[in-house]
Design a protein around this nucleic acid. Structure first.
Lengths: 354, 354
DNA sequence: TCTCGGATAGAAAGCGCTTGCTACAGCTGT
DNA sequence: ACAGCTGTAGCAAGCGCTTTCTATCCGAGA
């Protein structure tokens, strides 16, 4: 049936121990012996039994990357970058060793699924786990996640957060890379204010998520600094991070306050939906209404007009998270790094009509 | 240290065998005993050792989903849908059992990485593997993949292809869901021809990929049927499936043949780049040049003007692939199903100027 | 020539779980 | 009252690999 280490050993006329050592390259083996073993491996088309190996060695080469929505490039870009660094196959390096199996797990934004995936990864004795994207703010869930991560950590799993705020008690985590969502949100709205906008609608993400909250807080900070208070609730509509939601929410916004001169969206995808809604209402962008997004996903520059947004270095952050997970990079001081968000002013924002 | 089955058994005052059976629910256990065991599991915060379990049971709950580019929603959507069906956590069903760990592996379109991931999954004794997206057409690689899949298959792994043409010798595979790229490509170009276009440029995907070839063949079929031959090479530019490539290739196309009245892109992302290039040349869409894409990704309807494209039911196909991988759905006759591609006519195509 | 130490290879004891088989109740039917 | 069930639980043998400890072989130093 399946070829085992013993079969290889027999064919190479050595002991199983020797084959194992050749394969792991962590023990001196005479060149001639190694050669013989390698040939046998080849001849028999031998493939190591992962579970057996993990069991005996008490380690595994699985690395999990958790994302909220795999169909969203926001996560795809980070996950892809991380996976590249984690190496999976062909990281060019010498030989085996770095051969980690980087896998991405799609939680769909559901807390339960997030937890279950963590358990599954714990089962597999994952070498590392990278959590991407904003966290759900339910205290019970946060506690559960923290507890889980702590358990993972002291089972030897390296935990890295990417684009997610640090844990209350950061102990369990190798590093946390947090995006400056609040600062980005603030600068974006400041930009709009400086253009002369005063009635600014905000299409927010789902409630109870750190990303949503931070971006919104940045926005309100700027509004408040400009002395614009009182209308927060009326000019904010919440919804999921998708196009449809942006469309619907913007329609609602226009209903509540026909005089808005600018709409800020929770992210670029939502901004796309918002733009569509504005156009369907017969309004022009940016002449009648300015629109702004967040993230600077690849398609944003191709919107017409090109979308003003806040650029997050998703690829770089993902790659860095990958390296941290692999221990290829030393964690930032305190284990926490804030990733800057850069305002990208493009054609979708302009001064309001007078 | 870590809690083992034996610890749980001791605490519940039963044998390890019983604990195992309670956990797996595949053997009658008296309700009272089960209760006691479950409590012990809870008290001790026990987590099954995956590798040990897989080793002993000679199976694993890993399901691999291979994608070419995780940052591309084309793959993200399919992968997400598949993962949903595979259940991973919380598929709502009764209890454990369907608890598979669906993981997506990003090959980056590299044949070697594809192969390495397959080996890694083979190592892990994956329960199933779903390969998505077009295949590389290098014969050596195809042979290698086929061989690998055969090996996986007779190690008990269920192999499903999604959006990828069937293997030459389909034996190894549970099912192959192939997109009708050729038919879609043909209908798209027929649409353009029927509008009156004659000089149609084609921005193709990378060489040596089935998807690229099939879509291009469909296009040329239509052209030929309209009696338009001879200019194929000049009016075709190849490049990767990304925006940048679409931009550059379109510029090149306009250089080669300033009189093109329509540009067909290999996919929607490329079409976005093409549109940008056309605009940067000071031309209008669709008045001066029509543009069409392929896939109908979510953002395509939001392009301005909305993009004419070919809709591929990515979500449905991914979900079906997931179900097939789990054995929740019976394979199509012959193991092969062709997924229809539907022409979506929108604002980016119009009759050429006279 | 004899001893010692370095370099390799082998023996064997697990790693933590699953599962075929056996053991033992408590019933039923005769 | 006894054989024969059915329903539960335990025993123990692995699953295929890693790794510690031990054995061996050689050349080198004395």
């Amino acid at each position: 049936m399946t070829v085992t280490l013993a079969d290889v050993a027999a064919r190479a006329r050595v002991s199983p121990a020797t084959v194992s050592r050749v394969l792991n390259g962590n023990y001196p083996v005479a060149a001639s012996t190694r050669e013989r073993v390698l040939r046998a491996v080849d001849d028999l088309d031998y493939v190591l039994n992962g579970p057996a190996s993990s069991l005996a060695a008490a380690t595994s080469d699985l690395v999990g990357i958790l994302v909220n929505d795999i169909a969203d490039p926001f996560f795809g870009i980070m996950a892809g970058a991380a996976q590249t660094e984690i190496g999976g196959p062909g990281d060019g390096s010498g030989r085996a060793g770095g051969e980690k199996l980087a896998v991405v797990c799609n939680t769909g934004g559901s807390p339960e699924r997030e937890l279950t995936y963590l358990t599954l990864l714990q089962r597999q004795r994952a070498a590392a786990v990278v959590l991407t994207g904003g966290a759900v703010e339910d205290p019970a869930h946060q506690a559960a996640v923290s507890a889980k991560l702590a358990k993972l950590a002291d089972a030897g799993t390296r935990v890295v957060l990417c684009g997610r705020p640090p844990l209350p008690d950061g102990e369990a985590v190798v590093a946390a890379l947090a995006f400056d969502n609040r600062g980005g949100g603030r600068r974006l709205t400041e930009h709009l204010l400086s253009l002369g906008h005063r009635r600014i609608g905000y299409v927010a993400g789902p409630l109870e998520r750190t990303t949503t909250r931070h971006r919104l807080e940045g926005h309100r900070e700027a509004m408040r600094a400009a002395g614009l208070v009182g209308d927060e609730e009326r000019l904010t509509v919440h919804g999921p991070y998708d196009r449809r939601s942006g469309y619907d929410a913007t329609l609602e916004l226009l209903r509540r306050e026909p005089e808005v001169t600018a709409v800020v969206a929770a992210n670029d995808t939502v901004a796309l939906g918002a733009s569509a809604a504005i156009r369907d209402r017969g309004l022009r962008i940016p002449e009648d209404i300015s629109v702004a997004g967040f993230d600077d996903l690849p398609f944003s520059v191709d919107a017409v007009p090109a979308l003003t947004t806040v650029r997050l270095p998703l690829f770089e952050a993902g790659a860095r998270a990958g390296r941290l997970a692999m221990g290829k990079e030393t964690p930032p001081p305190g284990g926490i790094a804030t990733i800057a968000a850069e305002l990208m002013v493009r054609g979708s924002t302009a001064p309001p009509r007078v």
